[in-house]
Amino acid sequence: MSERGRNTITLATMTILAVLIVFLVATNPSEDDRVARLGSAIMCPVCQGESIAQSPAPMARDMMDLIEERVAAGASDAEIVDEILSSFSGAVLLDPPVSGPTIVLWAAPVAALLLGLMVIWWWRRAPVTSGEETPTRPVRTRTAVTALATIAVLIVIVVIAGFFLRERTDGLSGVAGLEVESLDEVSNATMEAVIVANQDDPAIDGMRLALAERYFTSGDYQAAFPHFLAVAESEAASASQVVTALIGLGWMAWDGNGEAETALGLLDQALSIDVDSITARYLKGRVLWCGLGDASAAEDLFTALLSSPGLDAESRVLIEEDLTALSESEPCR
């Protein structure tokens, strides 16, 4: 067979193969896993740069449960995303929309590609001077390089400016004896030391509370106790700080020591300062139900909570679960 004939056959075979592949791929009965897709497009608010689909953090799991529930209920993608973003503070999309400020993200790579193609085109067209220096060529090259350098430096300066601006916005001031931008960066040990050194400084309550909450979240009630107590008794502390401390003390009394009555007293004290505190009301309901077996009082409290403004979706899920358990007279979990 001639070379030409062979080529024709090869080309025809290639085309048939390609068409077959495209057909098979295009008719693939794909099942869109909406839960996974939505989950991987939302950043987990409490972890480090992971999506909620990846993170084992409890909050991320709750958010995934919510997505699953809404997908099952037939909500649209946009509805689900809006609901998540509005009800979990700090949740952000990992998939920036092609509109608003994030359009830059999509436009810039395209612009870079076009610019690159233009530069190559310009460069190939420009005559080669092969070593002989004409007066215009070096000037032009120098201008190009200088422009490039200026752009690079400007970008870096913008990034730097951003870096410092950002620090200022979430800066934290007023804690004696420690100059830091944010308490997140300070170790427990350092905080303890600073607190001991500034015991009489009224401004220390904020740090005490932050430290106590850290211990509290990690389950170290013993270490959290003195700090919560100090804030609850502090005269300089703000009302909301005292409420937080009382709630902490109340929950530890019940969860740590099983003292339901004491817990109830402390939570009531917190509610006497801030009658709307959702956490205090929720915990009071839990103590009533789980500690004192007063299911009906708990049910009333939870039902009232559901209609209170400012309740976030995560807590709503928790409360709804509790109410279901209560209505079926299940024991407290």
């Binding site: 991987s40 939302i42 999506s51 952000v92 998939d95 920036p96 400020p101 913008v158 951003g162």
Partner: peptide, 20 residues
């Protein structure tokens, strides 16, 4: 870098992650 810069100048938090 864009999310860092954008947040610094406008306070708008955007996430840029896997999907992008």
């Amino acid at each position: 870098t864009y999310p860092l810069v954008l947040e610094a100048f406008t306070g708008t938090r955007v996430g840029v992650g896997g999907p992008f």
